[in-house]
């Protein structure tokens, strides 16, 4: 176990070196965070967003897998906002909800990204 932890540590260090520039660019925006914001969704009404996942610049299947993880980590009914700039993510996340007991509320397109709103059904 110790050796494994150590190997993990060393390789993380190397990767973090690589990623230093990417992190500086995106700041702490990358990753998920709990939020509490009221958002007006077209054809749905106002909902309270409980978790935000910033996936800009990420390719498939990373945003999809992270959305699933976020669904698992949050309580049922919590609205999760997935922010992406990848068109195929916009296509797959809603159909993914059918398979995982989830609900796709809306997808909102803005200037250079999409915001997808999903939650686990209560």
């Amino acid at each position: 176990m110790k050796l494994r932890q150590r190997m993990k540590g060393v390789s993380m260090q190397i990767l973090n070196l690589f990623q230093a520039s990417a992190k500086a660019e995106h700041g702490d925006q990358r990753g998920g965070s709990a939020v509490s914001e009221k958002v007006e969704l077209p054809e749905y009404g106002t909902v309270e967003v409980g978790y935000r996942l910033v996936c800009e610049g990420e390719g498939c299947p990373r945003p999809q897998l992270r959305t699933l993880k976020a669904l698992d980590e949050n309580e049922r009914g919590v609205v999760i906002e997935v922010i992406t700039d990848n068109p195929s993510v916009v296509e797959t996340v809603p159909s993914m909800m059918d398979m995982f007991d989830g609900q796709h509320l809306a997808t909102v397109k803005s200037e250079d990204n999409w915001r997808i709103y999903v939650r686990r059904e209560i």
Partner: peptide, 23 residues
Amino acid sequence: LQYGRFCMASAIRDLFAIKVPRM
């Protein structure tokens, strides 16, 4: 391809990773 976001990699990947048969 762009219209349908038609990617055969995601056909296989989505099936195994997220069980989505769309592609």
